[in-house]
């Protein structure tokens, strides 16, 4: 039942975002679009509720996690992304690279947490997640490994992705 309601609300918000500007009801929508949106959302929710809420765990409904996600997106993540982009720009121009695949142990328990961290790592230039194993260890292709770091069996997580693992734990677990 919760899965059905969550899917309907999510679909309806997506519909509202896509049809904004169609009229002047409540500012941006026409009444016809709203009525049609309610019907379509209920149909889509009834069909696809089993796919969106597959795990049966509703911890992501907590608004605090959404707030933390927004803070993370505009704060540490955007800053790290900008810094890494300038670093990769420097490597593109000079051609100084020391590539390799390192292993990190983020110690995350849930699938969503690992997905969150892997996507953050891949969106930050310089690091690219290649594979994941059964113990949720990530294999990361790193474009410029610092001297000496390649000798460690498990690379220093702070050096690979900064505070991303901590944020992934806060937001997604």
């Amino acid at each position: 039942m919760i899965a059905l309601i969550v899917t309907i609300i999510y679909t309806f918000i997506a519909y509202l975002a896509l049809t904004a500007g169609s009229g002047s009801f409540l500012g941006f929508w026409s009444v016809e679009e709203i009525i049609m949106g309610v019907f379509l959302s209920i149909i889509v929710g009834a069909i696809s509720r089993k796919y969106l809420c597959k795990s049966g765990d509703y911890r992501m409904l907590n608004p605090l996690r959404w707030l933390l996600f927004v803070v993370y997106g505009f704060g540490p993540f955007f800053f790290a992304m900008a810094k890494a982009n300038i670093d990769v720009a420097y490597r593109v121009v000079t051609g100084k690279i020391r590539p390799g695949i390192v292993k990190i142990k983020p110690e995350l328990k849930t699938d969503f947490g690992v997905t969150f961290l892997a996507n953050s790592i891949t969106l930050t230039p310089g690091t690219l997640s290649v594979d994941v194993d059964d113990e949720n260890n990530l294999y990361v292709h790193w474009i410029n490994i610092p001297e000496g770091e390649e000798k460690n069996e498990i690379a220093n997580i702070e050096k690979v992705c900064g505070s991303f693992a901590k944020w992934a734990r806060r937001v997604a677990e």
Partner: peptide, 11 residues
Amino acid sequence: KPKNAVVDRLE
């Protein structure tokens, strides 16, 4: 395989 790689833990 990654070219010029200094380390390859996946291998």
